[in-house]
C-alpha cells in the first residue's frame, strides 16, 4: 500500500497537514490508557476477554458460560471446570472535540487553526490504524452531523470537514459536551481542543466526559495576545462571543495582575484535570503542531 493515496494527495496540498508531517504521523499510533470495546473488531487488544486466538487466563466455570471455552484437558486432570479466557482485539474510538466558538478565531494563526491542525494530525494517525475517528465541533452548523471516519480512505473527508469549520458564536462547553455525550455512548479517547474560556466554567463539561469514562485529553490553547496582551490606554474591552464589556485602564500593575490571573487560570485547569486523571496540555498558537504531536503528546502517552 502506497504511503500516500490519491485521496491523501489532495490533503497534502492543504496546510493543515504538510506532507513531511504526514510521513511522520503515519508511523505513530494512538494509545489509550484504557481499553475499550468498539463495535467492530479492530487492531487493538482489548482488556476484555474475547475471541481472539491469544490465550490470556483461566477462570472458574459458572453455569451459563459458553461450553465451547471449557478446558477439557484441565478437567481431565483436575476434575474441575475452568473456562479459558482469550484476549479480544477491538477498534479504538477517537473523538476530537473542537471548540469553534468566536473566541477561537483570535491570534495568528488562529487558535481554531491550531485546533484543526492538531485534530487533523491525530485523526490521521487514527485513520492510519483503522481507528474509529469522529471529529466534533462544539458549536456552529458543522456540529450537527459530524461524519464517522474509518480507514485511510477517509482522510480527505476528514480534511474537508475540518476545513469547513469556522469560528461561530458563543460556547457553552457544558451544553455542547452534554449533547456530545448523548449522541456518543461508546467509550474511547476524547481530545478536547479549547481555550476553556467559558464564563459558566469548563468543569461541568469535563465531569460529564469523565462520567462517560472516556480517556480524556485536554489541549488548552491560548493565543499569544491573550498571554501577553499589548494594550494601552483607557479601553473598553468587548467580548467576541457575548459582546460583554469590560472597561479597563491599562496600567503596568493591571497587566501584571492580568498575567497572574492567566497563570492562575491555567494552573487551576491543570490541577482540575490532573486530579481527575485527565491529561492536560497547555499550548499557544505559536507552537508548531508537529512538535506538539511528536513530542508533547507523546510524552503524555497519547501517541507512540
Amino acid at each position: 500500500m502506497p504511503l500516500i493515496t490519491s485521496n491523501d494527495q489532495r490533503v497534502a496540498t492543504s496546510d493543515l497537514l504538510p506532507p513531511e508531517l504526514l510521513a511522520r504521523l503515519e508511523r505513530m499510533e494512538l494509545v489509550s490508557r484504557k481499553i475499550f470495546r468498539g463495535r467492530l473488531k479492530g487492531e487493538r487488544r482489548s482488556r476484555r476477554k474475547g475471541q481472539s486466538v491469544e490465550f490470556m487466563d483461566y477462570r472458574d466455570y459458572v453455569p451459563g458460560d459458553d461450553l465451547r471455552f471449557l478446558d477439557w484437558n484441565l478437567y481431565a486432570r483436575l476434575e474441575r471446570l475452568f473456562i479459558k479466557l482469550f484476549l479480544e482485539e477491538e477498534e479504538l474510538h477517537f473523538y476530537a472535540l473542537i471548540d469553534s466558538s468566536a473566541s477561537m478565531g483570535f491570534g495568528t494563526p488562529t487558535k481554531l487553526r491550531v485546533s484543526q491542525q492538531i485534530a487533523a494530525a491525530l485523526g490521521f494517525i487514527g485513520l492510519c490504524h483503522a481507528d474509529r475517528v469522529k471529529l466534533h465541533t462544539l458549536t456552529g452548523p458543522a456540529s450537527v452531523n459530524p461524519p464517522v471516519l474509518r480507514g485511510r480512505a477517509s482522510v480527505w473527508r476528514m480534511m474537508e470537514y475540518l476545513e469547513a469549520i469556522e469560528p461561530f458564536g458563543g460556547t457553552s462547553l457544558a451544553e455542547s459536551v452534554r449533547r456530545f455525550c448523548l449522541r456518543n455512548t461508546g467509550k474511547g479517547i476524547v481530545i478536547l481542543l479549547s481555550d476553556l474560556l467559558d464564563k459558566s466554567g469548563y468543569e461541568a463539561a469535563l465531569r460529564m466526559l469523565l462520567a462517560q469514562q472516556y480517556d480524556i485529553y485536554v489541549i488548552h490553547i491560548f493565543c499569544r495576545e491573550e498571554l501577553q496582551p499589548e494594550l494601552a490606554g483607557d479601553l473598553k474591552l468587548v467580548d467576541s462571543e457575548d459582546q460583554d464589556v469590560a472597561e479597563v485602564t491599562i496600567s503596568h500593575p493591571l497587566l501584571q495582575r492580568y498575567r497572574r490571573t492567566v497563570a492562575k487560570f491555567i494552573q487551576e485547569a491543570k490541577e482540575f484535570c490532573t486530579r481527575r486523571g485527565i491529561a492536560y496540555l497547555m499550548t499557544d498558537n505559536q507552537q508548531a503542531v508537529e512538535r506538539l504531536v511528536s513530542q508533547y503528546l507523546r510524552e503524555r502517552g497519547l501517541v507512540r
Partner: peptide
C-alpha cells in the same frame, strides 16, 4: 473619558482580574 473599544477573545480573564 472615552474608552477605545477593543475586541478581545473573551473578557472572562479580564473580569476575573478586575
Amino acid at each position: 473619558l472615552r474608552r477605545l473599544p477593543v475586541e478581545v477573545p473573551s473578557t472572562y480573564l479580564w473580569s476575573r482580574t478586575l
